[in-house]
């Protein structure tokens, strides 16, 4: 059985896909941010300015 692309089921799946996509982006941002904070030992601005050397 086939159905048209604008079927109700597509709307639901689209909503789910967008939601999961946003969650994945959030996860990437969190892990990236966490990594930056950890490797700069919290001095992110200072590290960006090149004032901190990482041993």
């Amino acid at each position: 059985m086939s159905f048209r692309p604008d079927h109700e089921i597509h709307k639901r799946r689209f909503g789910r896909n967008v939601g999961i996509g946003l969650l994945l982006v959030t996860l990437v941002v969190l892990i990236f941010g966490m990594t930056v904070v950890k490797i700069t030992e919290g001095n992110v601005a200072s590290a960006i300015a090149g004032n901190q050397s990482i041993d």
Binding site: M1, S2, F3, R4, P5, H7, E8, I9, R12, R13, G15, R16, V18, G19, I20
Partner: peptide, 14 residues
């Protein structure tokens, strides 16, 4: 689009 249509109640929204 050619996949079998599942019962609407069973297709969860986000």
């Amino acid at each position: 689009a050619s996949a079998p249509l599942p019962a609407l109640e069973s297709e969860a929204e986000f």
